[in-house]
Amino acid sequence: MSAEFAPSRLYAILGDNGAGKTTLLRVLAGLTPPTRGTISMLGATNLRSICSQLGYMAHPSLLYDEMSGMENLVYFTRLYDAQSDDQRCAEVIRAVKLDPSLTRPVGQYSQGMRQRMSLARALLNDPKILLLDEPFSNVDLRSAREMVSLLAGLRDSGKTIFVVTHQASLLEGAADEFVWMEAGQIVSRTPDLRPPDTRSETP
């Protein structure tokens, strides 16, 4: 695969199951090494050197079920900064429309709340690049739309965002580009949601 992505844009990565969308995100996050070739992000080919500028949200929550959302975020801030910043944690929790004073453990959250807390964790270090794997799965429509407008706002503030999703229609009007994947390859990049094989048929 060979591709270039411009900064400050929101990319929706689409494709069937097994198309390689999650693998692409994991490679960009530096979690899975590419089988061959190199990746250059923010001018660096060593992804370890820029990991503090990446935000990664996986399909699982990447949160400890036994701790509250705030406790989780306070711990994760420490991974980026020697001093934990409770104010920053509360700010990102509020940004995803959750309550920072919620004391119940994440394990008792609904799936939608867990997804939003997981997004809050990815935003914690104010990353320049956001890699989001299925952020809207199990999230109710209203909350999903709120998440989309949050992402659009982040893009407008200069962040580059990659969203892997099966609910592409949510990103219509918000995403700058729809990237279609098949068998580990990018088969098409379109400015709107119409799949590549139907574009020529449209009058």
């Binding site: 990664y56 990447l62 400890y64 079920d65 991974l79 980026y80």
Partner: peptide, 17 residues
């Protein structure tokens, strides 16, 4: 085992810690 639940270990791996 508790780092594998919800793949929390990946959150550590992507951080500069």
């Amino acid at each position: 085992a508790r780092e594998l639940r919800n793949q929390v270990l990946d959150a550590y791996r992507v951080s500069p810690a």
